[in-house]
Deep mutational scan, measured.
Amino acid sequence: TETRTFTDEREARRFEQEARDNGKDVQVRESNGKFEVRVK
């Protein structure tokens, strides 16, 4: 599991989409204006 934290939602979404395109299981959590993207 890899976790990346972004402050920019667009960057978080781009990373999320890229991971999904690669067939990964992705979860995005938002807290305090930060976006935590977990990739399995």
Score class of each variant (00 low, 15 high):
residue 36 E to Q: 06
residue 26 V to H: 00
residue 26 V to L: 02
residue 33 G to F: 00
residue 39 V to G: 02
residue 14 R to M: 11
residue 6 F to V: 05
residue 8 D to I: 00
residue 21 D to M: 13
residue 23 G to Y: 06
residue 7 T to I: 11
residue 12 A to D: 03
residue 5 T to K: 07
residue 34 K to S: 11
residue 23 G to C: 11
residue 3 T to W: 09
residue 7 T to C: 15
residue 14 R to I: 14
residue 39 V to L: 06
residue 10 R to D: 15
residue 19 A to E: 09
residue 17 Q to C: 13
residue 11 E to Y: 00
residue 28 V to E: 01
residue 30 E to H: 11
residue 26 V to N: 01
residue 27 Q to G: 05
residue 30 E to V: 14
residue 21 D to E: 12
residue 31 S to M: 14
residue 40 K to N: 13
residue 39 V to P: 02
residue 30 E to Y: 11
residue 29 R to K: 12
residue 5 T to W: 15
residue 14 R to S: 09
residue 18 E to C: 13
residue 19 A to G: 03
residue 25 D to L: 12
residue 21 D to G: 09
residue 19 A to I: 04
residue 28 V to K: 03
residue 31 S to P: 01
residue 16 E to H: 01
residue 10 R to W: 15
residue 1 T to R: 08
residue 14 R to K: 13
residue 24 K to P: 01
residue 35 F to P: 02
residue 12 A to I: 02
residue 22 N to L: 14
residue 12 A to E: 02
residue 15 F to Y: 12
residue 25 D to W: 12
residue 3 T to G: 05
residue 22 N to W: 08
residue 13 R to Y: 04
residue 27 Q to F: 12
residue 1 T to Y: 15
residue 29 R to H: 12
residue 15 F to N: 03
residue 16 E to Q: 05
residue 11 E to F: 00
residue 21 D to P: 00
residue 37 V to D: 02
residue 32 N to I: 00
residue 33 G to V: 00
residue 11 E to D: 10
residue 38 R to F: 11
residue 6 F to L: 04
residue 26 V to W: 00
residue 30 E to K: 10
residue 19 A to K: 03
residue 32 N to T: 02
residue 16 E to R: 00
residue 29 R to E: 09
residue 32 N to R: 03
residue 29 R to P: 02
residue 22 N to T: 09
residue 36 E to K: 01
residue 35 F to M: 04
residue 33 G to T: 00
residue 1 T to H: 11
residue 22 N to G: 10
residue 23 G to H: 08
residue 10 R to S: 14
residue 37 V to W: 00
residue 20 R to S: 05
residue 32 N to F: 05
residue 38 R to I: 15
residue 6 F to S: 04
residue 5 T to Q: 11
residue 22 N to M: 14
residue 24 K to Y: 15
residue 12 A to N: 01
residue 11 E to T: 05
residue 33 G to H: 03
residue 6 F to R: 04
residue 2 E to D: 08
residue 10 R to T: 14
residue 3 T to N: 08
residue 3 T to Q: 06
residue 23 G to F: 06
residue 19 A to N: 08
residue 20 R to V: 07
residue 2 E to S: 10
residue 17 Q to K: 11
residue 34 K to M: 14
residue 37 V to H: 00
residue 26 V to K: 01
residue 27 Q to L: 11
residue 17 Q to L: 06
residue 21 D to I: 10
residue 12 A to K: 01
residue 24 K to S: 10
residue 16 E to V: 09
residue 29 R to M: 12
residue 34 K to L: 14
residue 37 V to R: 00
residue 39 V to M: 06
residue 31 S to D: 11
residue 31 S to K: 13
residue 25 D to Y: 09
residue 2 E to T: 11
residue 18 E to R: 06
residue 15 F to T: 03
residue 28 V to G: 02
residue 15 F to A: 07
residue 22 N to C: 14
residue 26 V to P: 06
residue 3 T to H: 06
residue 6 F to A: 05
residue 1 T to K: 07
residue 1 T to V: 13
residue 40 K to I: 15
residue 32 N to E: 10
residue 20 R to D: 02
residue 37 V to G: 01
residue 2 E to G: 06
residue 19 A to F: 04
residue 4 R to N: 08
residue 9 E to Q: 05
residue 3 T to A: 06
residue 4 R to D: 06
residue 19 A to S: 09
residue 1 T to I: 13
residue 23 G to N: 07
residue 12 A to Y: 02
residue 32 N to G: 10
residue 33 G to C: 00
residue 16 E to Y: 06
residue 7 T to H: 11
residue 21 D to V: 09
residue 29 R to S: 12
residue 14 R to Q: 12
residue 13 R to Q: 09
residue 22 N to Q: 15
residue 29 R to W: 11
residue 14 R to H: 09
residue 35 F to D: 02
residue 21 D to T: 10
residue 19 A to H: 07
residue 4 R to I: 13
residue 5 T to C: 15
residue 40 K to C: 15
residue 14 R to W: 08
residue 6 F to T: 06
residue 39 V to Y: 04
residue 39 V to C: 03
residue 40 K to R: 13
residue 34 K to Y: 14
residue 36 E to D: 04
residue 22 N to F: 07
residue 8 D to N: 05
residue 14 R to P: 02
residue 34 K to R: 12
residue 8 D to P: 00
residue 26 V to A: 07
residue 6 F to Y: 04
residue 10 R to G: 15
residue 10 R to E: 15
residue 30 E to S: 10
residue 12 A to P: 01
residue 4 R to P: 06
residue 35 F to G: 02
residue 21 D to N: 12
residue 13 R to A: 08
residue 27 Q to R: 08
residue 2 E to W: 07
residue 26 V to Q: 01
residue 33 G to K: 03
residue 24 K to D: 07
residue 6 F to D: 06
residue 13 R to S: 07
residue 36 E to G: 01
residue 11 E to N: 03
residue 8 D to M: 00
residue 9 E to R: 03
residue 17 Q to Y: 04
residue 17 Q to G: 04
residue 4 R to F: 14
residue 22 N to V: 09
residue 28 V to Q: 02
residue 13 R to K: 10
residue 17 Q to R: 08
residue 6 F to N: 05
residue 27 Q to M: 12
residue 16 E to M: 10
residue 25 D to M: 11
residue 19 A to M: 15
residue 33 G to P: 03
residue 16 E to D: 03
residue 15 F to M: 06
residue 2 E to L: 13
residue 31 S to T: 13
residue 33 G to Y: 00
residue 36 E to L: 07
residue 8 D to G: 00
residue 32 N to C: 13
residue 9 E to A: 07
residue 35 F to E: 02
residue 18 E to N: 08
residue 24 K to I: 08
residue 13 R to T: 06
residue 29 R to A: 09
residue 1 T to N: 11
residue 20 R to W: 05
residue 10 R to V: 14
residue 7 T to Y: 13
residue 8 D to C: 09
residue 4 R to T: 10
residue 20 R to N: 04
residue 14 R to L: 12
residue 32 N to Q: 06
residue 30 E to G: 06
residue 12 A to Q: 02
residue 40 K to L: 14
residue 15 F to D: 03
residue 10 R to H: 14
residue 9 E to I: 08
residue 36 E to V: 10
residue 19 A to W: 06
residue 6 F to K: 05
residue 26 V to T: 07
residue 36 E to W: 03
residue 9 E to S: 04
residue 5 T to R: 09
residue 11 E to M: 06
residue 6 F to M: 04
residue 36 E to R: 02
residue 24 K to A: 11
residue 9 E to D: 03
residue 30 E to Q: 10
residue 39 V to W: 05
residue 4 R to G: 06
residue 10 R to A: 15
residue 35 F to R: 03
residue 9 E to Y: 07
residue 8 D to F: 00
residue 11 E to L: 07
residue 11 E to H: 03
residue 18 E to G: 05
residue 18 E to W: 14
residue 3 T to Y: 09
residue 13 R to W: 03
residue 37 V to Q: 01
residue 16 E to P: 01
residue 25 D to C: 14
residue 26 V to E: 01
residue 40 K to V: 13
residue 8 D to V: 00
residue 29 R to G: 05
residue 39 V to F: 06
residue 36 E to P: 02
residue 32 N to P: 01
residue 34 K to W: 12
residue 31 S to N: 13
residue 15 F to H: 04
residue 30 E to W: 06
residue 32 N to H: 06
residue 14 R to Y: 08
residue 4 R to M: 11
residue 9 E to M: 06
residue 27 Q to W: 12
residue 35 F to W: 15
residue 12 A to L: 04
residue 38 R to C: 15
residue 33 G to M: 01
residue 34 K to C: 13
residue 11 E to K: 05
residue 37 V to A: 02
residue 25 D to E: 13
residue 7 T to P: 09
residue 16 E to S: 05
residue 10 R to P: 07
residue 20 R to F: 05
residue 33 G to A: 00
residue 19 A to R: 02
residue 31 S to V: 15
residue 21 D to K: 13
residue 7 T to N: 12
residue 17 Q to W: 05
residue 6 F to P: 04
residue 18 E to L: 10
residue 36 E to T: 04
residue 7 T to V: 11
residue 34 K to P: 01
residue 38 R to S: 14
residue 3 T to L: 12
residue 36 E to N: 02
residue 32 N to M: 05
residue 2 E to R: 08
residue 5 T to Y: 15
residue 38 R to Y: 11
residue 31 S to W: 10
residue 5 T to M: 12
residue 34 K to G: 09
residue 1 T to D: 14
residue 37 V to L: 01
residue 20 R to E: 03
residue 7 T to Q: 11
residue 24 K to R: 11
residue 10 R to M: 15
residue 8 D to W: 00
residue 4 R to E: 07
residue 17 Q to S: 07
residue 9 E to F: 05
residue 30 E to D: 06
residue 33 G to D: 06
residue 2 E to F: 09
residue 25 D to V: 11
residue 28 V to F: 15
residue 10 R to Y: 14
residue 27 Q to D: 11
residue 31 S to R: 13
residue 24 K to L: 14
residue 33 G to I: 00
residue 13 R to N: 06
residue 3 T to P: 04
residue 4 R to Y: 15
residue 33 G to E: 03
residue 25 D to P: 05
residue 29 R to N: 09
residue 28 V to A: 04
residue 24 K to H: 14
residue 5 T to E: 13
residue 9 E to W: 07
residue 26 V to Y: 02
residue 3 T to S: 08
residue 15 F to W: 10
residue 12 A to R: 01
residue 27 Q to E: 15
residue 16 E to G: 06
residue 22 N to H: 12
residue 11 E to R: 00
residue 20 R to Q: 06
residue 19 A to P: 01
residue 7 T to F: 12
residue 10 R to N: 14
residue 32 N to D: 12
residue 5 T to L: 13
residue 27 Q to P: 01
residue 29 R to T: 14
residue 25 D to T: 11
residue 34 K to F: 14
residue 1 T to G: 12
residue 30 E to T: 09
residue 38 R to E: 14
residue 40 K to Y: 07
residue 39 V to H: 02
